[in-house]
Amino acid sequence: MKSIVYFSGLKNKKHSSPLNKIKKLINRCEPDKLFSRGDLIAIKTHFGELGNTAFIPPIYLRPVVEVLKGLKTNPFLTDTNTLYVGMRTNSVDHLHNVNWNGFGYSTLGIPAIIADGLRGENSIDVPINGRYLSAVKLASDIVNADGMVCISHFKGHEVSGFGGAIKNLSMGCASRQGKLEMHSVTRPKVHQDKCTACGRCLSACAHDAIVIKPKAFINENCTGCARCIAVCPEGAIGINWDETVENTQLKMAEYAYGVHKSLKGKIVYINILINISPACDCYPGNDAPICGDIGFLSSLDPVALDQASYDLVMNQFGGKDPFVEIYPYLTPEIQLKHAEEMGLGCRQYEIKHVE
């Protein structure tokens, strides 16, 4: 059975606000049947790394906030800390980044909460019995929310080909330990030339997995929690990016399923197809868009939503895949196929146009 995907293009004969289209799209998904008065509803988005300008403009979240407030819910903005070291490595810097990129209270009127704690340590294991993972490690405040609106900037990505709802659910909702699990098959590594043997990583490690001899060394006790990465003042501890891109996509699909399961399917999905950049919004900069702006989509099915978004972008290239042209070593459909196999959604869809 085909899933319904609602679509609204950017052409507008009557010059009404595009924000009205987003409000109509979320209402077509009947959020009143998912969310109840007083529910704490996460608006999961990507705040963009400082210096990047391709992320979703904060004003596009205004209609989502208005709909949720109209339902008498308590919405909050959220994202999780990054695995790599940057402006979003810890919650303090992350919240500065939130405000500097325009997502502050004065713009949207709701608070921002970094869902996995001060340094990404607040994690809950959610059993999924997947093909590759028996459980996923999710940010605690994602799991503890009563529901979610997942609003994603559809764009290119050097590991998954494209990033949409599935990536926003998986990488975006995983704790730091979960992100490491998707990207790596081994423990973090210490760059000896940067290490000053200050010992901060020793204090952060809960598993006696680090010794100083004479500089930091991570041993076989490591469980992959990745706290050491966040606390190192020199950026001397890094990720072994040694998982294959295929396996990373497969794990992404299983993590996305885990979020869906933990929230009992109470999620509305919106994809924003504007400023479609060739790489992730995690970079502190961005390249020119790979194609023209397309519009907005919504659905209760993240697989159908990403498939429809993917197809719309390819349609602008005469059926060719621009993401594969940029990243020829990737097969972006791996994430879609496995997400469908997991029961997260359906790749077959019907587009319903919303004016």
Rank of each mutant, 00 (worst) to 15 (best):
G9T: 11
Y327H: 07
P111H: 08
H153N: 12
S36I: 03
P63C: 05
E350M: 11
A112H: 14
S3L: 05
G9C: 05
Y105W: 03
T80G: 06
V67S: 12
G86I: 00
L138Y: 10
V65M: 09
F154G: 04
D311Y: 00
A165P: 06
N240E: 13
N275D: 14
L300F: 04
F35S: 08
S3C: 09
E220L: 04
A279K: 13
L68Y: 14
L68E: 07
M171P: 10
R347M: 15
S299W: 06
V5A: 04
P58S: 02
S36R: 15
H353D: 13
G164S: 07
R37T: 11
Q348E: 15
Q335S: 10
N271F: 02
I26E: 11
P302L: 09
G161T: 08
E234G: 01
D141V: 00
I267Q: 14
E30N: 13
T223E: 09
R187D: 02
L250C: 01
G318T: 02
D242Y: 10
K179D: 12
E181N: 12
K21H: 14
C201N: 03
H94T: 03
L68S: 08
F7S: 00
C198N: 03
G120F: 01
E325H: 03
I128C: 13
N240A: 14
D39R: 01
Y257R: 05
R347K: 15
G295A: 11
A304H: 05
R227N: 15
E121V: 03
E340G: 12
K194I: 06
L305T: 03
N74S: 14
V303Y: 09
E30M: 04
S262R: 06
L133I: 07
H353I: 14
S299Q: 01
C225F: 05
S262Q: 04
E220A: 15
N97R: 14
I26S: 10
K352G: 00
N219H: 12
V190S: 11
S277D: 14
E49H: 06
L25N: 03
N271A: 11
G318Q: 00
V85P: 00
R37L: 04
I4N: 11
A304T: 04
G295H: 09
G161L: 05
S299C: 06
N271K: 05
N221C: 05
T53F: 08
S91I: 09
A230P: 02
P63T: 07
R347Q: 15
Y283C: 09
A139S: 12
I274S: 08
M182F: 02
I212V: 02
G343M: 05
V92Q: 11
P127K: 13
L50Y: 15
S140N: 01
V85H: 09
N315H: 00
S134K: 14
S16H: 08
N122R: 15
A204Q: 10
K194A: 07
N275E: 10
E121W: 13
C225I: 07
G295I: 10
K33V: 01
L95A: 07
L71Y: 02
F103G: 03
S175A: 15
R227V: 01
I290K: 04
A236T: 01
I128N: 14
I276T: 12
Y329D: 13
A135T: 03
